[in-house]
Amino acid sequence: MSAAQTFRAVRTLTLLTLGATMLTACGTADRLANIGKAPALSAIEDPSRNPNYQPVRLPMPEAPVVDRQANSLWRAGSRAFFKDQRAARVGDILTVNIQINDRAQLQNRTQRTRNGTDSLGIPNLFGLEASTNNILPNSVDPANLISTNGTSTSNGDGQIQRQEQINLQVAALIVQVLPNGNMVVQGKQEVRVNYEVRELMLTGIIRPEDITSANTISYEKIAEARISYGGRGNVSELQQPRWGQQVLEVINPF
């Protein structure tokens, strides 16, 4: 490598390092300012005011026309005769039970072997085989012009083992009621223990009839469910590679 190429390589690496440093400067400054302090909890806020919040819009049937009958306690479209305390309106709270116990084990194995042999010759061709010495070397036998052999072997073995288990409960808030009566719920829970914050976030669509009399619902009855369980703090930071290592893993082609 010439001196010019070495200089360009060093300059490129320097620029990449400076760029990565600028991108992480704000995060580094915040971490330095919070040394010795516990991670801060997020403030309680209106989910609909989040810049990333988007109301759910799905194809819905037409809203039924309410026909009120005189001298009748029943109203068309009502789901029950007596009102209960289960969540039904925007702002109501219900409990979501999350009990995930998934286990998957897959194993695939493939083995393939193929052998092939081909032989081609022209011992007789309208008497022209006698003149092959004029075209081909004398050592060529017309009866054995072409001979091929082929062998192919393929072996494959794959195995996947996965097991996940989560047992949690979180209170979710109804943030939207869809025209067909289904409700959009969203919940967030943060717990701080010994300088480590655990976060649980949940969102999805539920049916009112799936809510139990105890005002709870199981996670498998939530459509379009999005469940996130993670954390931040000293332990979480130790489990992540340093930003320099992450940059090298991205730009290193080998």
Rank of each mutant, 00 (worst) to 15 (best):
S154M: 08
D210S: 14
P51H: 06
F126N: 15
D118M: 13
V140P: 00
V185S: 00
P142H: 09
D92L: 08
D30A: 11
T28S: 12
P123C: 09
Q159L: 09
N124A: 11
A25T: 04
E209R: 15
L168S: 03
I211V: 14
C26L: 01
F126R: 15
M1P: 10
L106F: 12
N101C: 03
L41F: 07
Y219P: 01
L58V: 12
M1C: 12
S213Y: 03
R68S: 12
N182V: 13
A171N: 08
Q240D: 14
P123H: 10
W243P: 05
E190I: 11
V175N: 05
R232L: 03
K221G: 10
Q186G: 02
T95P: 00
N134A: 10
V191F: 11
S131F: 10
I100A: 10
A223Q: 14
P123V: 09
V184K: 00
A143V: 02
I35W: 12
Q165T: 06
I146F: 09
R198D: 05
G204Q: 07
T110C: 00
N134Y: 03
Q239E: 13
P137M: 05
P179F: 14
Q163M: 06
G244K: 08
S139T: 12
Y219I: 12
P253Q: 03
L178K: 02
L136Q: 06
G127A: 08
L58I: 13
F7L: 07
I217T: 00
S119F: 12
G77F: 06
P51T: 04
T216R: 05
R89S: 11
V250S: 02
I251N: 10
A214G: 01
I100E: 14
N194Q: 15
T113Y: 05
I174T: 05
I160L: 15
L200D: 00
R192I: 03
L202F: 12
E190L: 13
P64G: 09
V175E: 08
R89K: 14
L23Y: 06
A214I: 00
I35N: 15
L120H: 01
L106A: 14
S152Y: 02
D30C: 07
L200P: 00
E237R: 15
L15S: 13
G156E: 11
N133Y: 11
S228N: 15
T95G: 02
N101R: 08
S42F: 03
E129H: 06
Q240I: 08
L145P: 01
Q246L: 09
A70Q: 14
G121I: 01
D46T: 01
V90H: 10
V250Q: 03
P241Q: 04
L248H: 06
F7H: 05
N134V: 07
T117M: 13
L168E: 09
K83W: 06
V56H: 01
V250L: 05
A130W: 06
E224P: 00
P61A: 13
N180Y: 04
I222G: 00
N155E: 14
S147W: 01
P55R: 10
A3H: 10
S2Y: 01
R232G: 02
R242S: 10
I146V: 12
Q5L: 10
A3L: 14
N52M: 08
L178W: 02
R11W: 13
R232M: 04
P142G: 04
Q99C: 04
S154L: 07
A171Y: 01
Q5P: 00
Q161G: 15
L248D: 05
M183Q: 06
F82Q: 07
F82C: 03
